[in-house]
Design a protein around this nucleic acid. Structure first.
Lengths: 257, 257
DNA sequence: AAAAAATTTGCACATAATGAGAAAAGGTAA
DNA sequence: TTACCTTTTCTCATTATGTGCAAATTTTTT
């Protein structure tokens, strides 16, 4: 570990739960001298990635917000999905949240959210928050369309955590569940991420690969009422298909990872 | 220019207006061999800062969103200001936007926004967007409290751009204006950033240094109406003071830069 | 004003990044 | 399938570059 990674390793320190780091602590963490740590910190500050904090130390800096803005405004998936997500709320209920997620490492990362205007409890998902890959409609709908290769291994690695929430989970039953999701083109879950909340998710494709999912998140009671009034499932499926179609039609350059 | 800066230089490429870069183009831009460019790109992808794009090349990656989330959730100024900004909308009008900005290099960067729920034209400001340092209430209220040292030089460097919007601007008149803002503790501008829009800003301090400003942004007609109904200026000033006070009382570790 | 802490700089040295080209992987078309 | 692209990784010898140390400087605290 050397080379570019030094800068990146420093940045990663700030994803842990310590907000402010002294140059000395950074040096210790990377096992380099304090003067070297200062050299790096200086460059990171000049780039706006880090920001000196008054008492002592450094925190994440303002350039991060600029990068995030760029990402937000140029990502073809977000751009394509945004109006459709807004529309989804307007056509259903102002007490729901719609989230757009993608896979990232062994997690599902929320990359955009649209919130209904009426008061309702906040979602656990928010832009930039990673969630486990095996719990919740959002995750399962993505898993269901991932290449089967390596899935079981991943499942078994995470089985302990999954059992905490779904006591009767086995690989067999999980696999069957995924097949059903694949067939139906949506996934509905209750109380898997947060107690009393319902998730309803559908997949988004690019070039036949799954690249994201959109999900409605709402209270169980809201869902019951909504489902009686409207064909919610069809609406969500239609929205996700509309996004996939538009990505294809515009020939969007979508990240793969 | 070498060292850490390579990684940072690559990242900066993505702040320009090209969203997707090939490894080869990156190599050319930094004047290094293609293989070196690939080495860096690989590390950046592993860190999630960059993301391979299907056709050809690399774009900003998902980790950016995680960093931004961290920043949003841990920045003491944002955390302190957020509820007060929401409250400000609720107590005034749902057709206004409230923005929180700080200085960043020779610009003013929006670091948080709260938008009224009722429909109204969008603000030019959004989280992560940098605005010129000499136009608009937001900027002027920050300028007015910056150490005088070097201000005139900065002003003269930017005079051309300022004149485009404010035809009668001179350093003398500008300086006088800043003195008035300092005395009054707020700044009100009309049509300086966007035609027909009013900005009303007040300063936020930490340890007697200006660290940010909050501003109301709204249509001129909304302001007229609002100002008749309520002491808006006093309300904004009180809000900004409340934020400064709370920062002091909690001993928040605020970035200085 | 003195003392302590934080940050920057100069220098000699060896580590660690570099370029060039070969090899491998991935994708496309015949 | 095969061949032929392009993209990406790897190997290796070379030396440019980042490194630690100690001293210097600046900033903060007492």
């Amino acid at each position: 570990m050397t080379m570019p990674s030094r800068v990146l390793a420093i940045m990663q320190l700030f994803l842990g739960d310590q907000r402010v780091w002294t140059a000395e602590a950074i040096g210790r963490a990377l096992d380099v001298s304090t003067s070297t740590a200062y050299r790096y910190v200086k460059e990171l500050c000049a780039a706006g990635i880090l920001d000196p904090v008054i008492g002592a130390g450094y925190a994440l800096g303002p350039a991060i917000m600029q990068y995030d803005y760029r990402l937000r405004e140029t990502d073809p998936i977000i751009q394509t999905a945004r109006p459709i997500m807004q529309n989804l709320i307007d056509r259903t209920d102002q007490r729901i949240d719609v989230i757009l997620c993608r896979r990232f490492r062994d997690c599902v990362l929320c990359i955009h959210q649209e919130n209904g205007r009426d008061p309702h409890p906040p979602t656990s998902y928010a832009r930039g928050v990673a969630m486990p890959l095996f719990l919740g409609a959002t995750s399962k709908v993505i898993l269901a369309h991932l290449p089967a290769k390596g899935l079981q291994r991943l499942y078994l690695e995470n089985e302990r955590k999954i059992r905490e929430r779904l006591s009767d989970a086995t690989w067999k039953s999980f696999k069957d569940q995924l097949a059903i999701i694949r067939r139906d083109g949506y996934c509905l879950t209750r109380s898997e991420i947060a107690e009393g909340r319902v998730g309803l998710a559908a997949p988004i494709f690019n070039l036949d690969q799954i690249v994201a999912s959109i999900s409605l998140v709402m209270e169980a009671s809201t869902f019951g009422e909504l489902n009686r009034r409207l064909p919610v499932i069809d609406i969500v499926r239609a929205s996700s298909t509309a996004i996939s179609d538009r990505l294809r039609d515009t020939g969007a350059e979508v990240a793969r990872s």
